[in-house]
């Protein structure tokens, strides 16, 4: 579709747009699936039927109509479980990323702009925090707080706020030395006002890119914790628990493993690509 005679700038423009629209479409599809799960899912995600166990997906011999992506070892519909799994994945990723982002970015902004004691205390805290191995940290936290989605979200926020704090601190420091900050101060703006209305809009694209990345990470962390049975009860359909179950049946029912795995992969990839795309779109200089 790309015309070779098109000027180079136009063509690059298109490619960049595709890199924005494809992940966005995928995420929107997931959101839609998550919101309308009861309407879309062809079956009850929890309903077991031992007569229908390990049905192959629709394009293989022996597929049952209506079970598009086959069934697992307990006869549960894989597609329906994935659709309901999207609910949990998106819920966790949005709540976890937003709380991580607000907490970490606030500390980063304060450390980067106020400097002095603020910076010393916050930077030291980040250093100490990052000395813990993250996965061990997460497992430990969930073990202490008990399994469940709240623990998963808290674990993500408690581990990953340092990413926001570090990146946003550095960006804030760069912005704080810009002349427009001096202009605002000469115009009588208080320090806090300057931080919120002059500097924050300039670091916002980075915050949003990090948020997207964090959503991807949250999806993975949730899957890992489900995989090791530390998320919600293993009956509930999460992509991680499906992957864990599918792993045991890989030789006779590979689809139980593969479809959730691909979905997970695409989702994480989409979030990080989308983050970069949004960062560019938000920047008035880059986007013009």
């Amino acid at each position: 579709m790309v015309d070779a005679t098109m000027p180079l700038r136009r063509r690059r423009f298109r490619v960049r747009n595709l890199r924005f629209w494809i992940p966005l479409t995928w995420i929107m599809m997931l959101v839609l699936a998550a919101l309308c799960a009861p309407l879309i899912a062809p079956h009850d995600p929890l309903a077991q039927d031992l007569f229908l166990e390990r049905l192959p997906p629709f394009f293989m011999d022996g597929a049952e109509p209506g079970y598009w992506l086959g069934t697992d070892s307990l006869g549960r519909d894989v597609l329906s479980r994935m659709i309901y799994g999207a609910r949990i994945a998106l819920f966790v990723s949005v709540i976890a990323a937003v709380s991580t982002g607000i907490f970490g970015s606030t500390l980063g902004l304060l450390a980067g702009y106020y400097g002095g004691w603020w910076d010393r205390v916050i930077s030291r805290l980040v250093d100490i925090w990052m000395a813990f191995p993250p996965v061990l940290f997460a497992v430990l936290l969930v073990a202490v707080m008990g399994t469940g989605l709240t623990s998963v979200i808290a674990a993500i926020a408690l581990i990953d706020w340092t990413r926001f704090a570090r990146v946003i601190r550095a960006e804030t420091m760069v912005q704080a030395h810009m002349d427009y900050v001096d202009s605002a101060r000469i115009g009588g703006a208080r320090r806090f006002t300057t931080l919120v209305s002059e500097i924050l809009p300039n670091v916002m694209p980075s915050i949003i890119a990090l948020l997207m990345l964090e959503m991807g990470i949250a999806v993975i962390v949730e899957a890992i914790l489900s995989f090791v049975n530390l998320s919600i009860s293993s009956d509930d359909p999460t992509w991680g628990s499906m992957i864990a179950e599918g792993r045991g049946a890989i030789h006779f029912a590979w689809w139980v493993l593969l479809f959730p795995l691909i979905t997970l992969f695409l989702t994480v990839l989409s979030f990080s690509t989308l983050g970069e795309g949004i960062k560019k779109k938000f920047d008035p200089v880059l986007s013009s």
């Binding site: 810009m178 002349d179 427009y180 001096d182 202009s183 605002a184 000469i186 809009p201 300039n202 916002m204």
Partner: peptide, 17 residues
Amino acid sequence: MSALIPQDPLTALNPVR
């Protein structure tokens, strides 16, 4: 009481406002 006319008109204005 006072105001500044800065040296660099590129950086003295906030790029995102």
